[in-house]
């Protein structure tokens, strides 16, 4: 089980809800992923357009835990406001703190992320900060009381996969709260590697939404995450530089 604050989830795949070709495909992809946590952004409405189809309103909200993000925030203050707006819906008390500090890389601003996390914890939120792969920052966030740490595998939406497995492993080893690898996942093997490194979960969006067949990719991601977790729990063999035969050398009938 993935335990985040007071919540427990059997799925370790957290799915983003942006950029799908259409709602029908998205609904099928969400079903195929078996995700229980879905992320959303908070944005102004177009008040002159009464009919604005919205994915959230197509969902059976009893089946999912909503994880609003604070995307769009560049300061802690903005992130806190977005989180409070989301919570005012009465639908959620978890929040993904996302404070972008660099428009080119979309990497988070560590200082504003820390400040926003501190403030939102005081306000009683279940806080999951999106961070870079900085182990010291991860520890500082944990000390504040963050309920999970969400380091990026590589830049958001880049699909570059896990570019620094060593640093991710440092975070996984040195924090007690769940580590959810967030952003940059491109393929099922990327998600599997994250789990094999010992991550507690994976959050992804573009890898599924932008796939040629998002429904099939959602299922592939679910299976990869399960396989990666099993592999991690099973414990891989030690890497050696030389070969070791798998078949016995004794009892050979040929000369």
């Amino acid at each position: 089980m993935l335990n985040i604050g007071p919540y427990s989830f059997s799925s370790r795949l957290l799915l983003g809800t942006g950029k799908y070709p259409d709602f029908e495909t998205q609904k099928k992809a969400v079903d195929a992923s078996e995700s229980e946590i879905l992320t959303f952004a908070v944005r102004r409405m177009n008040i002159f357009e009464a009919t604005q189809p919205n994915f959230l309103e197509m969902l059976d909200l009893k089946k999912y835990t909503l994880l609003p993000n604070t995307a769009g925030a560049k300061t802690a203050e903005e992130a806190v406001r977005i989180a409070k707006l989301a919570k005012a819906s009465g639908l959620c008390d978890m929040v993904k703190v996302e404070v972008i500090g660099c428009d080119k890389t979309l990497l988070p601003d560590p200082i504003e992320t820390l400040k926003a996390t501190e403030e939102l914890l005081k306000e009683g939120f279940i806080v999951l900060p999106y961070t870079s792969d900085d182990v010291v920052l991860a520890r500082r966030l944990e000390e504040l009381g963050a309920h999970a740490i969400m380091p990026a595998a590589s830049p958001i939406g880049s699909g570059q996969g896990i570019i620094n497995p060593l640093y991710l492993k440092f975070i996984i080893e040195q924090t007690a709260v769940p580590v959810i690898v967030d952003a940059g996942i491109g393929s099922p093997s990327d998600a599997m590697i994250a789990m094999e490194l010992g991550a507690d979960g994976v959050l992804l969006n573009t890898a599924v939404a932008g796939a040629k067949d998002p429904v099939k990719m959602a299922r592939a991601m679910k299976m990869a995450i399960e396989a990666g977790l099993l592999g991690y729990e099973a414990g891989r063999i030690v890497r050696k530089e030389t070969a070791t035969a798998s078949s016995p050398l004794e009892g050979l009938s040929v000369k």
């Binding site: 809800t17 942006g18 409405m45 919205n54 959230l56």
Partner: peptide, 10 residues
């Protein structure tokens, strides 16, 4: 007055 809603996002 600000009126906001949840939209798709990651």
């Amino acid at each position: 007055i600000e009126l906001v809603r949840f939209v798709g996002g990651g």
